[in-house]
């Protein structure tokens, strides 16, 4: 077990390096100069631009810049934001962490709960109208882009019915529309997966045994059926977290949510390299951590899997 943990730790460190290197190169190689963007419509001579580039260390070769980044990041210094002149990156990102954690975990819970209900129901009522309806929903959930869903929900629930606020995160009611939008796609994916594994489990012999020993149908479904059907879905959970984090970039922009996604989008538009990298490190770490926990949990829940 400890050897496995050690291997995973090493792999995590490598993955983090790879993620930052890719983010670093991608942001630097993308056309667009942060200094020019900063200056906007100002007839600034190239001398002044060069002077500012020097101040920001942008005149150095890319790999040297990356070296500085790694060296400083190792001691927890991610530099200062270009956009928020002089503000440390961690200070720029910090308020977004809690916001994203709150509403994204809520969305994840909603997605899992929704998928459980829909997936089990449609498996139990296989080929009924309910099953078809749920799978139709799942299919549209997968194919409908989230900005379209967001607009649709906004028009119906905020403007037409007047039930919910349009944007922001000021009150619990504000969470509903963005969480629904963000949860839809992962919920739909998971529901389809659950339905398939439920169908497989339903015909297993241990299910028949459970019924034969006189257990109630609910107990059979939940304790024996769902528990086993959940195992394959557990691996998907890590991927779902990734999807939720990626989806938040767009949904946070549409609903004006001040989370990491919004900060990330703005940083990309402004070519705020230090903030882009800070967010990359943070999100990669979060994703790797979740995948790691899921893997551990998997072995824990399924005794057939052993780490050696």
């Amino acid at each position: 077990m400890s050897r496995y943990l050690f291997q995973r730790l090493i792999a995590t460190v490598f993955s983090l390096f790879a993620a930052t290197l890719i983010a670093f190169l991608a942001s630097r190689l993308a056309p667009g100069d942060p200094i020019r963007l900063m200056l906007g419509d100002r007839a600034v001579s190239s001398q002044v631009v060069h002077q500012l580039q020097q101040q920001y260390g942008l005149d150095q070769p890319i790999l040297v810049q990356y070296g500085y980044f790694v060296r400083n990041a190792l001691i927890g210094d991610f530099g200062t934001s270009y956009y928020y002149t002089g503000k440390p990156v961690l200070e720029v990102i910090a308020p977004g962490i809690w916001v994203s954690l709150q509403w994204e975990s809520l969305s994840l819970a909603l997605a899992v709960f929704g998928a459980l209900v829909l997936g089990v129901l449609s498996a139990l009522k296989q080929n009924s109208w309910l099953d078809h309806l749920i799978m139709l929903f799942a299919l549209s959930g997968i194919s409908l882009p989230s900005f379209a869903l967001a607009t649709f929900l906004m028009v119906i629930f905020s403007l037409q019915l007047g039930l919910l606020p349009v944007a922001g995160l000021d009150s619990p009611a504000h969470f509903i529309l963005p969480c629904l939008t963000l949860a839809a796609q992962p919920a739909a994916l998971l529901a389809r997966l659950l339905r398939a594994s439920m169908l497989e489990v339903i015909n297993q012999e241990y299910m028949r045994t459970a019924r034969a020993k006189g257990l109630g149908e609910m107990a059979v479904i939940l304790r024996h059926g769902l528990k086993n059907a959940l195992l394959p879905s557990l691996t998907v959970l890590g991927i779902m977290v990734g999807r939720i984090m990626a989806g938040s970039f767009l949904v946070e922009t549409v609903f004006s949510i001040p989370g990491l996604g919004r900060i990330g989008v703005q940083a990309v538009v402004e070519r705020d390299y230090p903030v882009i990298l800070g967010i990359t490190v943070l999100l990669s770490f979060a994703f790797l951590f979740v995948t790691f926990v899921v893997d551990l949990l998997y072995g824990f829940l399924d005794p057939r899997i052993r780490y050696a």
């Binding site: 607009t151 606020p165 549409v254 004006s256």
Partner: peptide, 18 residues
């Protein structure tokens, strides 16, 4: 001064009185 990056959202908020 309220930060609303998305233009469609801004119009919806204006219509709703936000």
């Amino acid at each position: 001064y309220v930060v609303v990056p998305d233009a469609t959202t801004a119009i919806a908020q204006y219509q709703k009185g936000e």
